[in-house]
């Protein structure tokens, strides 16, 4: 075995020997299952007529047209769940600084760039695993509820399976963005605050605000969350566009490249500012 493949093995062992990953996976599953189940019941209920539009309170003409419901519900896996792989990546990296495990890590393998590369690969795979768990919640629960209302969950459509595959990819890249953030901001508390504030508050606001003019809309497409939604191909966000017009998103592969660029930029800069510095 080369030292690089050993380093990757060690990074997997680090994740597997602590409880963080499955705690995050469990919380994420519950969160997405609840939202996907609840919203698909609401929308499928309206669409199938089981729930009267008047009961929703906005009147029949005020309801947004959500096109096809299943992809929207399925995309919750990444559009809502992406914060979890970011957290996993950031915690895995900042934990090394916090618990001073960089010392034994660099003693066992002094090639630091290789260690960071190994961590990125391990977290990419773990992000994909979280992606699968998230899809079990959004597709599993969502399809069940949609089917229960007599609507087609579109599970036979190749487009649905393309969305599922691209969701796994998006979640994997999000975990490596977390690694990049962790080396960029090695303080664990600061990192967590940034992840939560940015994903839950700052970016949604920016994306919403950017929709008001065409120029800012073009810029808004390059925000990481928007790029991720473009990669996956469906988003709850397009529903919220002012005037009900779905914003033009990037192509899925463009979104993927933009997301990847964020991961690489954060990791490379983080390597410079923290990873290769003195361990004291």
């Amino acid at each position: 075995m080369t030292s690089f493949s050993r380093a990757i093995g060690a990074e997997f062992a680090k994740i597997g020997t602590t409880r963080m990953w499955w705690i995050l996976a469990a919380v994420m599953f519950g969160y997405i299952a609840l939202l996907a189940g609840g919203l698909s019941a609401l929308f499928a209920g309206i669409e199938s007529g089981a729930i009267s539009p008047d009961a929703v309170g906005s009147g029949s003409q005020g309801l947004p047209s959500f096109g096809s419901l299943p992809p929207l519900i399925y995309s919750f896996a990444s559009s809502i769940g992406y914060v979890f792989p970011v957290l996993l990546g950031a915690l895995a990296t900042t934990g090394e600084f916090r618990h001073q495990t960089l010392t034994p890590t660099f003693l066992a393998n002094p090639r630091r760039g290789q260690v960071l590369g190994a961590k990125t690969i391990a977290l990419f795979v773990m992000g994909a695993v979280l992606g699968v768990v998230a899809l079990l919640a959004s597709v599993g629960v969502g399809a069940l509820v949609i089917g229960a209302f007599g609507l087609d969950p579109l599970l036979g459509e190749s487009a649905t399976w393309a969305l599922i595959g691209r969701t796994v990819l998006a979640m994997a890249v999000w975990a490596t963005i977390g690694v990049g953030l962790g080396v960029l901001v090695p303080s664990q508390v600061a990192s967590i605050v940034i992840v939560l504030a940015f994903t839950q508050f700052v970016e949604p606001l920016l994306r919403f605000a950017s929709l008001f003019t065409e120029v800012t809309q073009g810029i808004g497409n390059y925000l990481p969350g928007a790029a991720s939604d473009a990669l996956v191909g469906a988003s709850f966000f397009t529903l919220a566009a002012p005037g009900g017009t779905a914003a033009a998103m990037l192509e899925w592969w463009q979104g993927g490249l933009v997301l990847l660029a964020y991961a690489i930029a954060a990791t490379v800069i983080g390597y410079m500012v923290s990873w290769k510095r003195d361990v004291t």
Binding site: A13, T18, P104
Partner: peptide, 24 residues
């Protein structure tokens, strides 16, 4: 080295296993 460099949630055996893996 002087600093205690352990993840508190990892067992001693797993702590060593991580670095045994890295060093082959």
């Amino acid at each position: 080295l002087e600093a205690a460099s352990f993840h508190p949630g990892r067992t001693a055996r797993n702590h060593l296993a991580v670095y045994a893996r890295a060093a082959g």
